[in-house]
Nucleic acid binder design. Structure first.
Lengths: 138, 138
DNA sequence: TTAATCCTTATAGTTAACTCTAGGTCAAGT
DNA sequence: ACTTGACCTAGAGTTAACTATAAGGATTAA
């Protein structure tokens, strides 16, 4: 079975070795085994687990909370409900983030149009009525 | 014309007064005027500008970069191109984030199904073939 | 006029998530 | 045997974005 050194794992996951060791120190990778001399040996499934960790991170989950999940995984079946609840909550959070991002996108697109028009006109003054001051809010 | 005190502005924007003063210190609100005694007076348009700042923040833009944008706004028409480019770049970034979030969502939904099934079965062992170890990657 | 409740600045502290350094171990190649 | 390079730990340093404190000034209501 193929294994990865920490630098190979880092490359595979687009992380630095510092980050991986930091995650280990934070208890995110209790499953990674060591050689007799202490060198970490990443299995294929460890890489997969770290991808799940990255997925959770990308939902905005802090490392401390991810550690809870990892602990629950070690505890086995008695924590199935917690883990299910956690992923359902993550789902809701990601849905909310998508909504938020959609609204953000609308504002950004409005601004793109705004500046396109101003650029064509050569000036922002086309938006001026009588007020003086910044146009940031327009 | 209605104005807001810093605490009113904070309430309106769902920020703390600390955060607003911090933004001011970082040069994000050069447009906010003061009373003769130094108290900040937020105009309606200032609230609007801060909403744009919040929008940029929600795209993941760091405060230093937002400050550049604010500076460009003060510089007027000569920076129209930069500002247009910036918003186009933000647009691309938000699009990428949406894509990323979609992929994240797929993994999360897979996990929801996984744990629903395990929960119904009462154990995670249904996913075991012959390997021993964590199921995190499954 | 005095107390409360704002506001101000300057500066220090906090938190999360890295990021790096120092000093040491270990295995492979010359 | 020795050097090289990748690994290790412990712990210090960094960065962004707040968050809070201290000391004091201004405005309002009784």
């Amino acid at each position: 079975m193929k294994t990865y050194s920490i630098s190979e794992a880092a490359k595979e996951l687009n992380l630095t070795v510092y980050t991986l060791r930091y995650y280990d120190k934070e208890g995110l990778m209790p499953f990674v085994e060591r050689t007799p001399s202490g060198t970490r040996l990443f299995k294929e499934s460890d890489i997969g687990a770290l991808k799940i960790i990255q997925c959770l991170k990308s939902t905005g989950m802090p490392i401390k909370d991810i550690k809870h999940f990892i602990d629950w995984c070690s505890d086995g079946d008695p924590t199935l409900q917690q883990r299910y609840d956690m992923f359902m909550e993550r789902k809701a959070s990601v849905e909310a983030q998508m909504e938020e991002l959609k609204k953000t996108m609308e504002v950004i697109e409005h601004k793109c149009r705004y500046y396109k028009t101003a650029l064509d006109a050569g000036t922002e003054d086309i938006y001026k009525s009588d007020k003086v001051g910044s146009f940031i809010a327009d």
